[in-house]
C-alpha cells in the first residue's frame, strides 16, 4: 500500500485528512510563524460541524465571536491579511447582527485554503522537515 507520507503529496486535502500529516504540516507552519492559517482553517470546519449538529445557539454565537476576534478583527494578523475586505465585513455583520449561519465562514475558509494550496503547501513538500520525514 502507498505510505501515508506519499499520499500527503497528492493534495492538501489528503494531507489534512491524516493526523500525522496535519501534525507535521502544523510544525512546519509554526516554524514559519503562520500556524494560525491552519488553525483558522480547522476552526472554520469545526464551526460548520457544530452548526450542522444543531443545538446550543449561545455556544455557536460565542464561537463565531471567538473566531472573529482571534483571527479576523486585527487587520494585520496573518489570517486577516489573506482574507478579502468584503469577506471580512460579511463575517463582521453576521457577528454584530447575531445572524449566525453554517456557511458564514465558508468564503473565508476558501480564501485561506487557496493561499495554503498555492504557497505554503508546495513549500512544505520541498521542506527539510518533510524530506527528513520521508
Amino acid at each position: 500500500p502507498t505510505p501515508p507520507y506519499l499520499k500527503w503529496a497528492e493534495s492538501l486535502h489528503s494531507l489534512l485528512d491524516d493526523q500525522d500529516g496535519t501534525h507535521l504540516f502544523r510544525t512546519f507552519l509554526k516554524q514559519e510563524d503562520c500556524a494560525d492559517l491552519l488553525d483558522f482553517w480547522f476552526a472554520c470546519s469545526g464551526f460548520r460541524k457544530l452548526e450542522a449538529s444543531g443545538g446550543n445557539e449561545e455556544k455557536k454565537l460565542k464561537l463565531a465571536k471567538a473566531i472573529y476576534r482571534k483571527y479576523i478583527l486585527d487587520n494585520n494578523s496573518i489570517v486577516s491579511r489573506q482574507i478579502k475586505a468584503a469577506t471580512k465585513s460579511f463575517i463582521r455583520d453576521c457577528v454584530v447582527r447575531v445572524h449566525i449561519e453554517p456557511a458564514m465562514l465558508d468564503q473565508a475558509q476558501t480564501e485561506i485554503q487557496a493561499m495554503l494550496e498555492e504557497n505554503t503547501y508546495p513549500v512544505f513538500l520541498k521542506s527539510d522537515l518533510y524530506l527528513e520525514y520521508t
Binding site: A43, C44, S45
Partner: peptide, 20 residues
C-alpha cells in the same frame, strides 16, 4: 477570555483528523 480560548481550541480539535 479563557473560556473563549477553550471553546476555540475545542472547535479546532473537533475538526482535526483522528488516528486511523
Amino acid at each position: 477570555i479563557d473560556s473563549e480560548d477553550d471553546l476555540l481550541q475545542e472547535c479546532i480539535s473537533s475538526a482535526m483528523p483522528k488516528k486511523k
